[in-house]
């Protein structure tokens, strides 16, 4: 399967999808760790996470998919939200929590 099609399916399959370096329990990059921490602080128990370090085609493909040159990348309800800085700013302003509630993943 084409990597772009695979990414489209991954993003459609779960309400919250994170492309990161490492895994939520063992992040291998401070920026990826920061996004995981923010999601957990929002009260999110579970989300889909894909480790780009395990798949070079995914690592390149996700940059092209969002036209965004860095990882991590967060998607909510199929929509690209941003990287670590944007996710942190949106958490601090409360926008992220609102988005997660709208997505039906927060009580």
């Amino acid at each position: 399967m084409d990597i772009q099609e695979k990414i489209r399916q991954q993003i459609a399959a779960d309400p919250v999808v994170l492309y990161m370096k490492g895994t939520p329990d063992f992040p291998l990059c401070g920026f990826s760790a920061a996004v995981v921490q923010v999601l957990r602080r929002c009260g999110l128990k579970d989300f889909a996470a894909y480790n780009v370090l395990e798949d070079e085609s995914l690592r390149q493909g996700i940059k092209e998919y969002a036209n965004w040159p860095t990882i991590p990348q967060l998607y909510i309800k199929g929509e690209f939200i941003g990287g670590a800085d944007i996710v942190r700013e949106m958490y601090e302003s409360g926008e992220l929590q609102e988005l997660l509630k709208e997505a039906g993943v927060l009580a």
Partner: peptide, 10 residues
């Protein structure tokens, strides 16, 4: 938007 701003910087 934030995403648009970051895209300009990138």
């Amino acid at each position: 938007s934030r995403v648009q701003r970051h895209r300009l910087v990138f």
